[in-house]
């Protein structure tokens, strides 16, 4: 196996995430696209770890940190989306144009 095959796949996943982030209209779908991008970064970290194999398994440790932070991000993100939905009765980000409610 080569390292670059994993890097190319992760580039593809990341750019799909970028597309979804910019093109989607629903806030939940935007969060899904962010998950795609985070997953691409995880794949990179684990692939580099398989190449370098340092004594502390740093790539894997950081992938676990990323998964934890991503879980926190989804929790907070969905709470905010639900809160906005309760006040505005929509989850369409194009309608969120004011900071006040």
């Amino acid at each position: 196996m080569t390292l670059v095959q994993f890097l190319l796949l992760s580039s593809l996943l990341f750019s799909l995430g970028v597309y979804g982030l910019l093109a989607r209209r629903n806030a939940v779908m935007i969060l899904l696209s962010v998950e795609l991008m985070l997953n691409a970064v995880n794949l990179n970290l684990v692939a580099f770890e398989a190449w370098i194999r340092d004594a502390f398994a740093t790539g894997n440790v950081f992938a676990i940190f990323m998964i934890t932070v991503a879980a926190a991000e989804v929790g907070i993100g969905l709470a905010i989306v639900i809160l906005i939905f309760r006040n505005r009765a929509t989850a369409n980000v194009d309608d969120f144009e004011l900071m006040r409610g």
Partner: peptide, 26 residues
């Protein structure tokens, strides 16, 4: 959005290929 995503992919894939094109992993 599609243009931005394609440009991102080209940049990332090109950089990875140039920097790590010949690295073998087990």
């Amino acid at each position: 959005a599609a243009i931005t995503a394609l440009a991102t992919f080209a940049l990332l894939a090109g950089t990875s290929w140039v920097a790590f094109g010949d690295v073998e992993i087990e």
